[in-house]
């Protein structure tokens, strides 16, 4: 009888939650490392195609993003249902590209300006017409390093 009581008495302490904050902080730091602040909300829907010969974009500060795709449902009245270009967080035309590139270039350290890459995030159903126009605009404004954003293809 006495044996039973003793055992029950010993097993009663609650589990210590003192290390719980540490665990949560670890999770927090993990997410802070692997994610990036969302800089612009997408107004066009972009599903990138898949490819095998991929290169990783190294420095985030040296990359500018150009989105091309069909406007999402809520922007159809404003922008129509044809493929559009999005620069920053608004719809744009190919004429706006030089200014957009220049604005980004100003933020980058002078010595690193040659390393700036343009990431083209293009929806896979887009036709090449608008993509070709954007490419021409990029070439005209001297931005030759281009990355066609793509997913890794499972083989």
């Amino acid at each position: 009888m006495s044996k039973f009581e003793k055992k029950r008495g010993k097993s009663s302490p609650a589990i210590s939650t003192a290390s719980l904050p540490d665990i949560i902080f670890m999770l927090l730091f993990f997410f802070m490392m692997v994610t990036v602040m969302r800089d612009s909300s997408l107004k066009v829907s972009v599903v990138t195609p898949s490819a095998t010969e991929l290169t990783k974009l190294e420095k985030k500060s040296l990359v500018n993003y150009l989105y091309i795709g069909k406007p999402t449902a809520e922007y159809v009245p404003e922008a129509g249902n044809k493929s559009r270009l999005q620069l920053g967080d608004k719809f744009a035309d190919t004429d706006d590209i030089p200014l957009f590139l220049e604005n980004h270039r100003q933020k980058v350290d002078e010595r690193q300006r040659g390393l700036i890459t343009s990431s083209l995030r293009v929806d896979k159903a887009t036709t090449m017409g608008i993509v070709g126009d954007v490419k021409t605009a990029l070439r005209k404004s001297g931005q030759y390093k281009v990355n066609y954003s793509a997913k890794k293809r499972a083989e």
Binding site: V36, L54, S149
Partner: peptide, 27 residues
């Protein structure tokens, strides 16, 4: 800590920053 964690989960994205790197010719 949970509050902070959830804040970061909402405001950030995991971007797949990979792609086919191309060098365009001058115009």
């Amino acid at each position: 800590a949970f509050l902070l964690l959830i804040f970061f989960l909402v405001t950030t994205t995991i971007v797949e920053d990979k792609g086919v790197l191309v060098r365009l010719p001058p115009w």
